[in-house]
Amino acid sequence: MIEHYISNKTITFLPLLALVSLFFFSSCSDSGNGPEELQSEIQAETVMDLHAPSLRDNPDARFVLFSFRSGQTVDIADSASTSWDVGFRGTEIILNSGISGPGEAGLVRLDVAFDQVTIAPSEGYEADGETLAMADWYTYTGMNEPMRAVFPNENETYVLRTADGNHYVKFDIISYYKGNPDTSTEAFANLQRRPASPFYTFDYVIQLEEGLRDLQ
């Protein structure tokens, strides 16, 4: 049983859109015959508390598949299709590519803050191999306070290509704990009172126009 809540809030940045189209227009004018003008269509989403039990929680746990294009989870029965982009199980995150799926999903890891990524690179995308492309997305505190906590890496942004190979997404994991709690509190440090995990909260921004790399 998968429970999740997605807060849809399609944001159309009209002025920005104009600016981006202007940029395209001007940058292509040199070639003389500009290509058909593409309309950038950006959608920013926040997914709250996507529950993705780990193998320790449930030995039969399957990956919770998610599509950035639809903003919805995808049934595990469709795992052999390109309808999903990423999958979550505990701290494991897979991409629909390489050894994990039939798709063309790829990942670029940038040491840049989420807001500062305005365009997706054209190449350098990594598929899932023996080492997952999304490995090491978090820091485990171990014996340091707060003990045994999973914190997403700071100042790291993931740019993904969707499984169909046509869209670009930037992706930022915010929390691994239910309700995206304040992790500096004593309640969080207390293992008995710490909110449940794994409940993913993440932000993403997708370019809905095929082939366009703009993310702002």
Binding site: V108, R109, L110, D111, V112, A120, P121, S122, E123, G124
Partner: peptide, 11 residues
């Protein structure tokens, strides 16, 4: 060493 982007957005 950090992975960042150039003006064209490349890595």
């Amino acid at each position: 060493e950090r992975t960042v982007q150039d003006n064209q957005g490349e890595i």
